[in-house]
């Protein structure tokens, strides 16, 4: 199987969910409707042998609407091919979590939540992962204020026994 065949199979199975297919430098990217990402991911995992989630990350297109791309890099260990899925979202609009399909998505989605502020619905443990819990803002956003950051303060200045 090739990534092109996978893309064709996905288009046939989910004609409404696949919004766009892009070929660049031998890689295939598919833009998927946000509410159907879990179904598409399950189909990729079970029927198209993409059992390995290589990477999950996000891109912030500050001036575009929708603003955020969530990017999934899938690998088929059987055929050693890769496929890129993308989901678009705006601020405050949660993306369905794919942790039920790939366990690896757990920390990766937490990282995206931490650094971009994109929420994932039905994620088992959605909280900050790299930054401290009291941190304000999401530093990987393109409009993040990079100077004069107020660091999270301890809860009390006094020593409590």
């Amino acid at each position: 199987m090739t990534p092109e065949e996978s893309a064709a199979a996905l288009q046939e199975r989910f004609p409404e969910a696949v919004l766009d297919v892009v070929h660049f430098r031998g890689e295939v990217s598919l833009l998927i409707r946000r509410d159907q990402i879990v179904d598409v991911a399950k189909f990729c995992h079970d029927d198209l042998t993409y059992t390995f989630l290589s990477d999950l990350s996000a891109v912030d297109w500050l001036d575009q609407r929708p603003r955020f791309d969530i990017v999934y890099h899938l690998t088929s260990l059987e055929y050693m091919i890769r496929l890129r899925l993308k989901v678009q979202t705006v601020e405050g609009q949660p993306v369905p979590s794919v942790t039920s399909v790939w366990g690896a998505a757990n920390w990766a989605e937490r990282e995206v939540y931490d650094l971009y502020g994109v929420e994932f619905s039905s994620h088992p443990d959605l909280r900050r992962i790299l930054l401290p819990e009291g941190w304000v803002g999401h530093p990987m956003r393109k409009d993040f204020q990079q100077t004069q950051i107020a660091l999270p303060r301890p809860k009390s200045d006094k020593w409590v026994e």
Binding site: S29, S54, V59, H73, T75
Partner: peptide
């Protein structure tokens, strides 16, 4: 455009995801 390239690192799949918007700096470097 955007690319993902992985190699076999000492610990496993070491991949870079680069997004270009046509300027001299990567728009996204992951």
């Amino acid at each position: 455009g955007e690319v993902y390239q992985a190699i076999e690192g000492a610990r496993g799949e070491m991949g870079y995801y680069l997004v270009s918007n046509g300027t001299g700096k990567p728009y996204r470097f992951h």
